[in-house]
Structures are given as C-alpha cells and as structure tokens.
Design a protein around this nucleic acid. Sequence first.
DNA 1: CGGCTGATTGAAATGCATCAAACAAAGTGG
DNA 2: CCACTTTGTTTGATGCATTTCAATCAGCCG
Lengths: 234, 234
Amino acid sequence: MKNIIESTDNINLSGFRFFKTLTEEEHKSLNSEKTCSSYKKGTIVYKEGSRLTGFYCIIRGIVKIYKTGNDGKEQIIRFAKKGDIIAYRSLLSQESACTTSKIIEDALLCHIPYKTLLNLIEKNSSFSLAMLRIVCAELKEANEYITDIAQKSVRELLAEVLLLLKENFDLDAEKTLQISLTREELANTVGTATESIIRLLSEFKQDNLIDLQGRKIKIINLAGLTKVANITKY
Amino acid sequence: MKNIIESTDNINLSGFRFFKTLTEEEHKSLNSEKTCSSYKKGTIVYKEGSRLTGFYCIIRGIVKIYKTGNDGKEQIIRFAKKGDIIAYRSLLSQESACTTSKIIEDALLCHIPYKTLLNLIEKNSSFSLAMLRIVCAELKEANEYITDIAQKSVRELLAEVLLLLKENFDLDAEKTLQISLTREELANTVGTATESIIRLLSEFKQDNLIDLQGRKIKIINLAGLTKVANITKY
DNA sequence: CGGCTGATTGAAATGCATCAAACAAAGTGG
DNA sequence: CCACTTTGTTTGATGCATTTCAATCAGCCG
C-alpha cells in the first residue's frame, strides 16, 4: 500500500452535504467508524470484481470511475470530486464492484464501512431519502448520457463532454478547465478513438472554440461550443 | 382519458415482490391509497416534462420508457413489465418527468401517490433499502448500457438487445420473443437507423441465428447470437 | 378504394476507426 | 546527468460500417 501516503483521522465529515441529515449522535459514530487515507495519482481504489467493505467519500482530489468493455477497452462512467461518494452502488446491491476507480488527481478519501451505512439507513429515514435522491440523480445522468451517446456524433459528444467537465470542475481565471485528462481518457469518456479526439480538439481550436496547451484546455467560446454540442437546455 | 378502459380497484399489490417488506398494516393502506387503471396500447402514461403525482406499478402489459433527444429522435431507455415500477426516479427527485412512457402492450397499472411512497420510506427502513436496491440495479444496467453503446458496433448491439429482450420477456414454445416491437423501436433502442436494423435482422436470418415473420422474432441459435453480441458473461 | 404507417431494398455519401510512422515528453537507471 | 524506455501526442492514408436519401411495396383501417 505504498501509494497511501498518510493516514489522516482528524477529518470531520459533518460538513459534507451528503451527511447533512445526520443527528449529532450519528455524526459522532460516523466520524469514529470512518477511515481516511490519502491516495496518490494513479492508485486504484477498488477494481472491477473486488468485494467492497464500504463506500468512500471524497474529501479532495479527483477519481475516475470506469468499466472495462468486453474488448478490454475502458469506458469512463463518471468523474467524482470533493463531496461525491463512490462505490456505494455495488455496496448497496451487495455485489462485487462492477466498475474500477482510479485516482487521477491526488486525493483524500474516507472509507465508511457497510455496517455504518446500513445502520444509518435503518435508523434515519431522512438519510435514506437523501441517499435515494443521490442514486436517482446519478441514474438520471446515466439515462441522459445513454441518449446522447446513442444519438450524437463524436463531434457533438466531445463538445458536450467538455461542457459537462466545465460544469463539474469549473474554469480558473484564465478559463482553463480544472481537470487534466489525457486524450485517451477523453476518448474513453466519449467512447471513440484517441486519434479522433486529437483531430476534433485541434478543429475546435482552429474554430476558436477552445485553446490548447498540452493537457490544458481553455474554453474561450462557451456559446459556440454549446452550439456544436447541439444542446437545447442550459 | 378514453384510453383508460376500465377502473379496477380490486387488485391486491401484496403479492408483488416490490412490496414484500411491508407490514400488514402498510399493505392495507397501500391497497386503499392506490388507483389501478387499464391502458390500451399506444397510450402515453406520462410525458417528459409533466409533473408526477405518484409512481406506477405494472400489473400486466408492457411499457416503453424513452427520452427525446435534441433532434427529436426517441431513445428507448428500457421496457418495463409485470412487477416493475416506473416514474419513481423523477418522483423521488421531485422533478418533472425526464422520460416519456408509452404502453406497447395493453396494460394494467397501479398508481401509488407520492405521499404513500414517502410514508413508506419514512416508516419502514426495510422498504427504503429495497427501494435503494431497485434504483441501484437500474443504475447498474444503465452503466453497462453506456459501455456497450459506446464501444460496440451496431451489429453487436442489436444481437445483445435481442438477448436482453429474451432475458426479460422470454420465448414461447416456438422460441418466439414475447415482445413485439416495430423495426423503428428496435432502432430507437440500439440508437441507429431503422434501415440498419432491417438489414442486420435479415443478415441474422440468413446466418440462421433468428427467424422472422413480420414482427415476430424467433431466436433459433442462442449460442451464435451470443457470439455475435460479443458477450463474455452469461 | 385511397391514405397511412411500417418494411424493404438499392445506391451514394461520409464519419469514424484503424493502421502506420514519427515525434514529444516524462520518468528510469546506470 | 545523459542515454534509454515508456507513455502520450500528432498527422497522414486507407477502408469500412453505417447513415442518408429515394423509391417501392405490403398491410391495415375507416
């Protein structure tokens, strides 16, 4: 476990939105039953097929969650960041993990045991409802992504993914996307070939929609990108 | 509401697996608070954007759940049958419906008010857990579908969809798929053009994987179809 | 019978994947 | 600290699966 570089047990989860509904009592036991660890970029938190002992709450850093297709190709399902929880789906279903999760930006995660989760669900109906709403929100996004991936061209999809990343990870003062992905990771999100991503990105750059410097992506024409993405909402 | 042809309030929901965890007391109030109605093929149960007052449990019949893409094309998310519940996702999130659901085989549905659902979640933690597991199961399938749709060829996908339909709706003694879809509906499930479905189906027929008689699809070579679908599991 | 929806086939156009090669960057070990 | 290996990026050329457009046909209903 050389990739877990420090053990930090003085984290308090009470501030995270996910645990808003807990009583003081519950907060106490949650904070004593959790285990926080820091993870280096590249570390795998859990693998497809492994048994899970709990779920994780992300204190900081970014995690990519992906499935391995039948041809071994990775399909990125989502990126999780501060405040998000991961691994809860398979845990609740009491199945082996059906995704792999990998740190893509140095992270601090809290592990919360299954028993603690079950206890909260049993004792605190507000928590259950909050939990239900989280799963429902993720299901909604999954359904929307199915629709997009099934109907849109790679060009539209890439533009949309850039916009989604912007929503989730924001831009800095120079409009640079605050998540750094390889071209291959972008390809594995969109479900296309790395070369296609490269070509489309440089087309977007030529069209003055974005600017590129290595892995840094600046979004310089939001409206234009939205148009390319063929999005009606927002 | 001319498409609701009868009102049947003598249905007892206690037998359905979804309500297994309810106490006798809860069964009673559930059965008194629900409203059952019969729907003709073609009827829309609820539309994208509409406000929901409750969710539905399917007593019999088949319902297709779809989203409308930005170009107006319908993307079928799933087919629901006896014992399944629909509309619960948007209801729990307290949002307008983000899918449309349409009867594709004459159906009998029970409407269960939001209040009743909330009450069950509040009072019965076993029910909450069961509910959570249902949403998690649907999320799992959605994630798997994302991976397939993003990575597989239309040919592989169609084979897989036929197999999924077989799992969910079975075959009769003559190996005929017990769900009848138009070519367009198949196309809207796979996310492709109707013409592609037609061509691929007749290729499958030529390869003696399936047999076609109008909308009836017979699966005569399960192993072969599985191979075409490029599936490792099962 | 005409009108409508769904199914089918053909031909042409194209978006995207694949393969190949070269290059850049970054980390490793002597 | 430099050669080496590895990993990621880029560009070009080619092929193919799938879309699109067009036309015809079959079945069904009022």
